[in-house]
């Protein structure tokens, strides 16, 4: 196995997750490709409803079916079994089966925006972390508790020997968030998925959590998928950035590329619409129009009704491909694609 492939942690190809509702089909994720390597962070950004959460919930196989269904594509998870690299396609697994349960928590950890969705209010955080460890690993309860305390200490929770017996509601929002990170990492996963983990906390707590994630990433060589709608946050934490619009990745590349040379008209428009803490104060330019209803995704390039550069007769007809314009910088726009008219 080549080095390049042993570094790989996850590879998503042409993933499509649709919801079949009475009123129509929501193509929430519609042909998404990306991969994440060890020690790297992929940031996913985009407006509300563009499919960020559905993408990662599909990876965790947490999508309710019906109405949700994976209609195409693969999610290859690279993992070690007895020191041998093996690749499993998560889309082929039974979401309720033993193997998937083992992947959730053991191979992939997940933190959410609201820690209360991860913790039950009925049990102490210690009980819940210990339970998570015991589910996945062959160690006794005492060892599991020791490990839980160690992780709570590692995420910066004061007096972990005592705090381990606290109930979730007894902790501040920032501390709960840390406890959730401790739980997500307690089985040494290779991949951590963080869905808006700092949206509900103060900037000071946010900074602590971002620093913590970066430290732990270095220590554990974690691959991270980090979802946020905050451009500044993504620029602090990500190596690669994927910009999503209506279920598709419209631009992908190294963080520096995306920030310094955004190519897709949507990315450019998004940047111009967001207030910044540095640079000249210029009037914000809102993106024209609204995100269309997810039942009626526009024909051709789905951004065309809002795009300043749209070419009539072409953009509303032809679906652009995600084209590599060099250095792994990819863009889904007909301007960068040679089209037959």
């Amino acid at each position: 196995m080549s080095l390049e492939l042993t570094e790989r942690v996850i590879e998503v190809n042409n993933l499509k997750t649709y919801f079949y509702l009475d009123i129509g089909v929501v193509k929430a994720v519609d042909g998404v490709d990306f991969s994440v390597d060890r020690g790297k962070t992929l940031g996913i950004i985009g407006e509300s409803g563009c499919g960020k959460s559905v993408t990662v919930h599909t990876i965790m196989r947490l999508i309710q079916s019906p109405p949700g269904k994976i209609v195409d594509g693969s999610i290859k998870l690279y993992r070690f079994r007895n020191n041998e690299l093996e690749v499993v396609d998560i889309t082929k697994l039974d979401p309720k089966g033993k193997e998937m349960r083992n992947i959730r928590g053991k191979e992939i950890g997940m933190v959410f925006q609201e820690p209360m969705t991860a913790f039950s209010p009925m049990y102490t955080i210690g009980d819940q972390i210990v339970e998570a460890i015991l589910t996945h690993e062959n160690i006794d309860k005492k060892k599991a508790r020791e490990r839980a305390i160690e992780f709570l200490r590692r995420v910066g929770i004061p007096r972990p020997e005592r705090t381990i017996d606290a109930y979730p509601f007894q902790l501040s929002g920032g501390m709960r968030q840390r406890a959730m990170i401790a739980m997500a990492l307690s089985c040494y996963p290779r991949l951590l998925i963080a869905d808006e983990p700092t949206t509900a906390v103060d900037v000071t707590v946010q900074a602590q959590i971002l620093d913590l994630l970066q430290e732990l990433q270095e220590e554990m060589k974690l691959a991270i998928i980090f979802i946020t709608h905050n451009l500044a946050v993504v620029s602090e934490i990500a190596d690669d950035i994927a910009v999503m619009y209506l279920g598709k990745i419209v631009e992908f590349g190294k963080k520096e590329e995306i920030f310094n040379h955004p190519l897709h008209p949507y990315t450019v428009a998004l940047f111009r619409s967001i207030p910044k803490v540095e640079g000249k104060l210029e009037r914000l330019v809102p993106i024209y129009g609204n995100v269309p209803s997810s039942y009626q995704i526009p024909e051709g390039c789905s951004f065309h009704p809002r795009c300043e550069s749209a070419i009539r007769g072409i953009c509303n007809v032809t679906l652009p491909d995600l084209i590599d314009v060099g250095n792994g910088h990819k863009v889904r726009c007909l301007i960068y694609q040679k089209v037959e008219v």
């Binding site: 900037v203 946010q206 900074a207 971002l210 970066q214 905050n230 451009l231 602090e236 540095e278």
Partner: peptide
């Protein structure tokens, strides 16, 4: 407070 504000400048 200000030092915690995330920045779009490059590099950690």
């Amino acid at each position: 407070l200000l030092s915690a504000v995330p920045r779009t400048v490059m590099g950690r």
